[in-house]
């Protein structure tokens, strides 16, 4: 669009630019710097070129093996929670009341999990799932189900997934609800008059109108789940074994546990790049498939 141009407007962007430079660009450059070097402490650095990156992508090395395994776990985790949270969020949004005082009540209840700090969510579930004193763990075990997230890989995964679903389905539901609210009443009336079944109404009206918000929901949930750290770290600490060690947890282990700043820096860069690429792919695929471009409103 050829809007009228006022160059002075750029000055307004300067403060933001300065802040971003200090908070993002400078640290990023530091990370790039580290990723090319090796350190043995004492602030001594040795040039290592792209060595860390080579190692990172080679599954036969220790670093590469750990990275690729955690990456696989991370992708599996994101896939599972998306497969659960998106349909569940839609169902929750659809079953919410459309008007009346109950709307406010539902919204507050849905918003509650979103308001809890992440480490608290982890702590809640860590206690909730304990077989000795946790309500969930104790109940399951007394029902004869052998449940222990500390020793059993499957139980650990199940706990982390259920916890994430509990924590984040609300977000998907709220976004979908906002999409549903924007559908004019006439559409529902027309569908009623056309004799459409509940399923037909969903397929022909609600889903197409929710397309946009669903795209945002999927993107947000993917990015968040791909970067997940706090909750599984609090609940399982990445175990048992390495079974719930996601990339971020691995990263912290390397950077802080072993103080391998070079390896950690290389890993963060690759990690970052993967997130950017996957988001871009998601966005392109989803905007092209299904989501209609807005009708062009020309000069009437």
């Amino acid at each position: 669009m050829d809007k009228t141009i006022n160059q002075k407007a750029w000055f307004l962007v300067l403060p933001v630019f300065a802040v971003v430079a200090f908070s993002a660009i400078l640290p990023l450059m530091t990370v790039v710097n580290y990723s090319m070097q090796d350190t043995f402490g004492n602030n001594q650095f040795f040039w290592n070129g792209v060595g860390w990156f080579k190692e990172l992508l080679d599954p036969s090395t220790d670093l590469g093996g750990r990275f690729l395994a955690s990456l696989g776990r991370n992708l599996l985790f994101s896939a599972i929670i998306l497969a659960i949270e998106v349909p569940l969020g839609i169902v929750v949004a659809l079953s919410m009341p459309r008007e009346g005082w109950t709307v406010a009540v539902c919204l507050v209840i849905l918003a509650l999990p979103l308001l809890i700090p992440w480490n608290v969510v982890g702590t809640i579930w860590q206690i909730f799932g304990r077989p000795d004193i946790g309500l969930l763990g104790y109940t399951l075990n007394s029902l004869g189900i052998d449940y222990n997230y500390v020793s059993n890989e499957f139980d650990a995964w199940a706990t982390v997934i259920v916890m994430d679903v509990w924590h984040w389905t609300s977000l998907v539901a709220l976004l979908c609800y906002a999409g549903l609210k924007s559908i004019p009443d006439a559409y529902y009336q027309a569908a009623q008059i056309d004799g459409a079944s509940r399923w037909a109404v969903f397929k022909a009206i609600q889903l197409p109108k929710m397309n946009r918000v669903l795209l945002i929901a999927v993107l947000l949930r993917f990015m968040d789940s791909f970067m997940i750290y706090t909750e599984p770290f609090v609940v399982t600490g990445g175990g048992p074994g390495n079974s719930t060690t996601f990339v971020s947890i691995e990263l912290v282990k390397i950077a802080l546990g072993q103080f391998d700043l070079g390896k950690a820096a290389a890993l963060s860069l690759v990690y970052n790049l993967i997130i950017l690429i996957v988001c871009w792919v998601f966005y392109t695929v989803m905007t092209n498939a299904g989501v209609e471009r807005p009708a062009k409103k020309g000069g009437a």
Partner: peptide
């Protein structure tokens, strides 16, 4: 068993 046409076009987008 009635039919109705509304003020603004009601179109099923995906069809």
């Amino acid at each position: 068993n009635i039919a109705q046409v509304f003020q603004f076009p009601v179109i099923y987008d995906t069809m």
